[in-house]
């Protein structure tokens, strides 16, 4: 359950801004309190990349180590749309049930 949600969030963060590097994703996820420790992100990113949902390029940074900038691949984009739809359906379904419960 949570695994899918995290993936959805990562994909959509990347999708929203076209190109992002890990610290940006971390920043957003932490703000939303979706992850507790930063280490969680890296295995996920690597897996998404290995599944060819993400691609990346290196960019030198003046202030720190070289950064990996991630962007969505075509199949990543597709999956993101599917996941979003699935999520919306789920949310509607759950809300309906909660509403009924509240009324009862």
């Amino acid at each position: 359950m949570r695994k899918g949600v995290l993936e959805l969030c990562i994909l959509s963060i990347i999708g929203k801004r076209d190109e992002v590097y890990a610290s940006d994703i971390l920043h957003e996820l932490k703000q939303a309190q979706l992850i507790v420790v930063e280490g969680t992100l890296y295995p996920l990113l690597t897996r998404l990349k290995n599944d060819e949902l993400l691609s990346y390029r290196w960019e030198e940074s003046k202030s720190g180590p070289p950064r990996k900038y991630y962007r969505l691949t075509e199949s990543g984009q597709q999956l993101l749309t599917e996941l979003k739809n699935g999520w919306n359906e789920l949310v509607t379904a759950v809300e309906q049930i909660i509403k009924i419960e509240n009324q009862a």
């Binding site: 280490g39 969680t40 996920l44």
Partner: peptide, 13 residues
């Protein structure tokens, strides 16, 4: 280390 987390805390899968 606290920020990155212990290995077992990184498990989401």
């Amino acid at each position: 280390i606290a920020q990155l987390g212990q290995p077992f805390e990184m498990e989401t899968e």
